[in-house]
Amino acid sequence: MSTESKPLSNQESLDIITRMIQNAKGNIRGGSFYFLLWGWVAMLGNIGHFYLMEYTDYSYPFAIWLISIPAWVVSFIYGYRQSKKAKVKAYSDDLIKWVWISFSFCLLIIVFSGRFGPTIPILVLLLAGMATFITGFIIKFKPLIYGGASFWIFAVIASAVAPSYSLLISAIAVLVGYLIPGYKLKAA
């Protein structure tokens, strides 16, 4: 690109502005890592919790969720490495990051306050739906928007079945609302 020797016409100026703003759009595929990691963790957690609760005498079926600890560690390391590697920082990166950090705070309160009991899977579905829906809008990726909305439908279904079965509904919700859009995002 040359500098300022020849004068710019209105149209040329507009073309430069449009092209550069288009060029600045970041690579959204990187975000698929989190959807796939947490999608599989949530899937295993829900199915494992259901299995331990229904088919074994194990007193702490919720202990399966300890698998989320290594997932947190992996998420932090991956996020740190990605931010070090990135040559550009988009506004959307921070927005998405804070949406999911606030989701995580809500999750910690819901799980560790001990006040929500069997409604936990339903509340998690509602909040995960909101975070996924907003993320979909920020990166303008329709499968995530639909995926986020599907969480809300599954939340209603989960509230209508027996508590243990709400875990299975959550597993299906994770597949539809998280993993399928996550794989589509990876392929985008």
Binding site: P7, I21, A24, G26, A90
Partner: peptide, 17 residues
């Protein structure tokens, strides 16, 4: 009003850094 400076500004206006 110069090609390259306008391009740089258009890029930077779209991102944090």
């Amino acid at each position: 009003h110069s090609q390259l400076r306008l391009a740089v500004m258009s890029l930077l206006v779209s991102v944090q850094s």
